[in-house]
Amino acid sequence: MQEIQSNAVLPAGSARLEKRNLSYKRKQQLFIYGSLFIPLLFFAAVRIIPIFYSFNVSFREWNILSDGVRPFVGLDNYIELFQDEVFHKALKNTLIYVGVGVPGQLIAGLAVALLLQQITVLRGWFRTIYFIPYMTSIIAVSWVFRWVLIPNGAANGLLTQLGFAKQLFLNSPDQAIYLITGVMIWQILGFQMLIFVTGLQGIPQLYYEAADIDGAGRWQKFWRITLPLLNPTIVFSLVIATITYLQTFTQVKNMSSAGAGGPLNSTKSLVLYIYDLGFKHHKMGLAAAATVILFIVIMGLSLLQLKFVSKKVEY
């Protein structure tokens, strides 16, 4: 009799348990989707909506000091931009920052990562030393290097002691942009080093052991094993570095003469040009048009890199 009663109770108990589990799963899913929705909402508020708003502003004559009349002017802002020699110079300078900074940063980061892989003593200490500049304030680093590179600074003092002539450095239209790019490479080197160290540690040692058995040298292992298997890491670093150098602003603002991208606009980046248009000349329509162009350049270069640099990697 007791067995029959217990058997009769089991289905009802399992049904309640199943219902409770279903309720728990629903609450869990609501929590997960809610947690995902809140950051997405924040991203839309600070990123997506301003992008579309910038498109609207770029088609208007928008002066922040005007009385609120902002007429629609179509493509006039874009036409005016492409007729501006300073815009051409800023765009060219930005491409120089990318063309010099990105390869230099990737090569230096990979070289340091490979060297760190070869040592066993104080490896963590060296990683920390290389990573410290990346954590340091960009403004502080920029002003330290500006002090070093002034006409009577430490760099010219060292050159004089070695018997060389003094250099203009940041006051030279030919030298300044490459010096600023060099400072950026030096400061971001630690970040790239850490990314490449992580990528190198993800490569199975089995391949190197097989290569050693086959008699492969260091360069052969580097070109045939390390580089191909580092492709996902290289693509990530390449895209991040390209976007970083396309958005160059703080270093130029703090290291260039008068903070205006000098001398003779030789260091003015596209972002600094946008800043000057919007907050110095109060021409928000032109600034928004230049921002849209920068957005198209960033998106285009990123898509091209993902398409032509990415390769399928199989371990």
Results as ranks from 00 to 15, higher is better:
Q5R: 08
Q5K: 11
Q5P: 06
P11A: 03
A15Y: 09
L17I: 12
E18R: 11
K19N: 15
R20G: 12
N21I: 10
S23T: 13
Q29E: 11
I32M: 10
F37M: 14
F37V: 13
F43W: 13
A44L: 14
I48T: 12
S58P: 01
F72V: 14
L75N: 11
Y78T: 00
I79C: 09
F82I: 12
F82H: 05
Q83N: 14
V86S: 12
F87Q: 01
K92C: 08
T94E: 00
I107E: 00
L114C: 08
Q118F: 08
L122V: 07
G124P: 05
T128W: 09
I132A: 10
P133E: 07
I138L: 10
F145Q: 04
F145T: 00
I150T: 12
N156V: 05
N156G: 02
T160F: 10
F164N: 10
K166P: 08
K166M: 09
L170I: 02
L170H: 01
P173Q: 06
D174R: 14
Y178C: 02
G190K: 02
F191P: 04
Q192N: 15
V197G: 05
T198N: 15
L206T: 11
R218E: 13
K221A: 09
F222A: 06
I225H: 02
T226P: 00
L229M: 13
I234T: 04
L238W: 01
I240A: 14
A241D: 00
L246V: 07
T248L: 08
S256H: 01
A258E: 10
G259T: 02
P263N: 02
Y273H: 06
Y275K: 02
H281I: 08
H282T: 10
G285H: 03
A288W: 01
A289E: 06
I293G: 03
F295V: 11
V297R: 08
G300Y: 07
L306C: 08
K312G: 09
V313C: 06
